[in-house]
């Protein structure tokens, strides 16, 4: 038993080091005014600065791509919820079969990798509905689909934990319409999983590269990729910020997920 525990600690420590090293390297690279070649143990505490980040924040290209990413993220979260919440609520209320079909469909994006999806999308829409390709907001539906496996799961957990039928019956026996029932009864009762789904959608969009890159839309990850050459420190710094943000989003959705379950 004791030996088993020592081994277990060893495993965790080794894995921990593996997880830590790239993050430390990236942080030092981004925030120390020391040429990469010279970074060593000796100057671990020297010349720290957040200037690379500040300077990057001032760049107009950064600003435009950051603002585009934020807008896309919000639009994606919104469209996801508008599309999924009422549909899944009805499915939970009325039809086990529909529930299963929606569940199945939510795993489809798993079979169609993002790269295949965007290739098909570009081909199909270029001829018929080119505005979807031209406008950066054409990305939103694709993002909704990319995030679907995660967002669906989050909402499913919330709905499954609820006695939806009783709630809806009560609401409608008081004369509420279906629309009002969704907005005023169902939504408040699953707000934790709605927030979880929204956080997951935001995380997916802020990190998504494949689709934006193939449709040549200047989102934040694309900015990172392009500016890596001229402004390596700045782009690494922004990359760290992105990691931090997605950490916060995932952590909050985890926390909320626990609320749903309890």
């Amino acid at each position: 038993m004791r030996r088993g525990r020592a081994g277990a600690w060893l495993v965790l420590v080794v894995v921990f080091v593996y997880y830590l090293v790239p993050m430390i390297a990236m942080t030092r690279f981004a925030f120390q005014r020391i040429p990469v070649i010279k970074l060593s143990f000796g100057n671990l505490f020297d010349k720290w600065t957040i200037a690379p980040l500040i300077e990057t924040f001032k760049e107009p290209e950064f600003r435009s791509s950051a603002s585009l990413s934020v807008q896309l993220a919000i639009a994606t979260a919104a469209l996801t919820l508008i599309l999924l919440v009422p549909t899944m609520a009805v499915a939970h209320l009325r039809s086990k079969r529909m529930r299963r079909m929606i569940e199945l469909s939510s795993t489809l994006p798993f079979v169609v990798p993002a790269i295949a999806l965007v290739v098909g999308f570009a081909g199909a829409f270029r001829e018929t509905l080119p505005m979807f390709i031209r406008s950066p907001f054409g990305l939103v539906p694709l993002y909704v689909i990319t995030a679907l496996p995660f967002t669906h799961r989050a909402l499913e957990n919330g709905l499954a934990a609820l006695d939806l039928r009783t709630l809806v019956d009560a609401s409608q026996s008081l004369g509420a319409t279906w629309y009002r029932t969704v907005v005023f009864v169902i939504v408040p009762n699953i707000r934790a999983s709605i927030a979880t789904a929204a956080f997951l959608a935001l995380t997916v969009v802020l990190g998504e590269f494949t689709i934006a890159s193939l449709l040549l839309k200047n989102t934040l990850p694309l900015y990172l990729s392009y500016s890596q050459g001229q402004n390596p420190q700045g782009s690494f710094a922004v990359g760290l910020v992105l990691i931090l943000i997605s950490t916060i989003f995932v952590a909050s959705s985890n926390r909320l997920g626990k609320v749903v379950r309890s």
């Binding site: 090293v21 790239p22 993050m23 430390i24 390297a25 990236m26 030092r28 690279f29 981004a30 990469v36 070649i37 970074l39 995380t203 990190g207 998504e208 590269f209 990850p221 990172l224 990729s225 890596q228 782009s235 690494f236 990359g239 760290l240 992105l242 990691i243 997605s246 995932v250």
Partner: peptide
């Protein structure tokens, strides 16, 4: 598990690239 994409690549370039820290 949700990490990936460009920032993760940067982190590993900083650590294990030609001139990486590690």
């Amino acid at each position: 598990a949700n990490m990936g994409g460009i920032p993760l690549a940067f982190a590993f370039l900083a650590a294990f690239g030609m001139q990486g820290l590690a």
